[in-house]
């Protein structure tokens, strides 16, 4: 029963995928549609999309978690409000604005898209890292220090492990945000499923548009599911 509940999401997503495949299969596809909706092209777009989202997420985790740690240390804690304000601006700016401004300033391509995705999805990870570290019971830190653990050892062996659940929740949010936002990469020639969706719109081919959109949604749902599993695995035992 628990297993069934656990597998419900991938089963439903597979079902949706199947319906999509059958539906596309029954359509009479013209040459434009055929160029977009063939296995090789779609696979290429999916891989591009995944690469973007994954790379952005990795960069975000490294940057935002480190920043979160720095901003909760005694000496540098004062900087936190300023940094959070900047991160809020990143979150509040429409993502397309980031891409366009980024493209104007820095040109186009994978790296620029990455930069925009990172700026846009850093906040949840940063905020959760800080909240996660701040909610660690002060008395545990007192105990660790009182026993002679160095500040670094206290961070690595007590504070971070105890913040893992909260930090991972932020990472999961960032991942989903990145999958969604990566569709906009197409506007600065960044590739991904945004290409499929955009051609569907531009060429007036609804089948193409729907396929691109549904695939993106499926990807977001599946990644969220995987991340949820990772959260369960990585949560320290004993909590």
């Amino acid at each position: 029963m628990a297993l069934l509940r656990r597998l419900a999401l991938p089963l439903i997503v597979s079902g949706v995928g199947l319906v999509l495949a059958v539906w596309v299969g029954t359509q009479e596809l013209d040459s434009i549609e055929q160029r977009q909706l063939n296995g090789a092209t779609l696979l290429e777009k999916i891989v591009e999309h995944l690469e973007l989202a994954a790379a952005a997420s990795v960069v975000v985790v490294v940057l935002a978690v480190s920043l979160g740690i720095v901003l909760t240390r005694p000496g540098t804690r004062r900087l936190a409000p300023a940094v959070i304000a900047v991160a809020n601006v990143g979150q509040a700016t429409p993502s397309i604005g980031f891409l366009v401004v980024g493209a104007i300033v820095a040109g186009i391509g994978f790296d620029r898209v990455l930069l925009a995705l990172v700026a846009y999805s850093a906040l949840p990870v940063l905020r959760n890292t800080m909240v996660g570290l701040q909610q660690v019971d002060r008395s545990l830190i007192e105990a660790a220090r009182g026993l002679g653990m160095s500040p670094t050892a206290t961070l690595l062996r007590v504070e971070l492990p105890l913040s893992v659940p909260v930090i991972l929740a932020g990472v999961r949010t960032a991942l989903v945000v990145n999958v969604g936002t990566a569709t906009l990469a197409t506007f600065v020639d960044g590739g991904g499923l945004g290409d499929t969706i955009n051609s569907g719109i531009r060429l007036g081919r609804d089948t193409v548009l729907v396929t691109g959109a549904v695939l993106t949604a499926m990807m977001a749902l599946l990644l969220d599911w995987v991340a949820r599993g990772a959260e369960d695995l990585l949560r320290p035992r004993g909590l």
Binding site: L140, A144, G238, L239
Partner: peptide, 28 residues
């Protein structure tokens, strides 16, 4: 840190690390 390791400290709130086993706590 060296000074503290010469003094066993039992804090008021007990302060056992919840994510560590009894053995890991004791062997800190």
């Amino acid at each position: 840190d060296a000074l503290r390791r010469r003094m066993g400290y039992v804090i008021q709130q007990i302060g056992l690390f919840p994510h560590m086993t009894v053995q890991e706590n004791v062997a800190t």
